[in-house]
Amino acid sequence: MPEADLAPELSSTQTAILTAYSELIEEVGTDDVSFRLIAVRAGVGERTIFRYYPARVDLLLATSAWIERTIFTRQESESIFDVPLAIREAMEAYDRRPELAHVVAETALRGVNGAEPAPRRDRFDTMVRGEVPALAEHERRLLVAALCHLDSAATWVTMRRELGMAGRDIADAAMWAAEAQLDPIRDRAAG
């Protein structure tokens, strides 16, 4: 499972809370969900939620991370040249759960107090370094940055919201853009 090794150990109570909140987000949005409602849905006391997540923002960030790990799971790429395919699959997954895609996209753009904006940065960097060792460090950083930007829920949100694109067109455009990023290094892989 990709990224699973980075995931914190969650108790079954925490999993129940995060599941309940993500369900309620899909039903009524992030704002209109009270801790009481989450507690009822999760089958725990309201005080239990506060013990794990003292503030709403703590709960939201934990839920967002959990959604990325369990619902928008990507198949692990063996090669950097497989990443466009993973991006395409991710876009299809976002398209199936639009409300959750918005939550994941928004929490990653909050700055230092938000969710990790480039969770696969180190993995991409390691793959590029291993497969295209001749690429200068600076060039590698710019390539990894572009791929991380494309490999995110914000891609789906922008293409949906700003361009009104359908799910399959978004999946195509995101994959195509990622392939284009790899064009300059296609024939520079180490033998």
Partner: peptide
Amino acid sequence: GRDRQRIAAAARYFASPMFWARMRTGF
């Protein structure tokens, strides 16, 4: 038409404050 849309979508997305935000926090 297909390339026109792909190029516009990608250009729009990289020109957004989202790209600035991700580059600032993530990189």
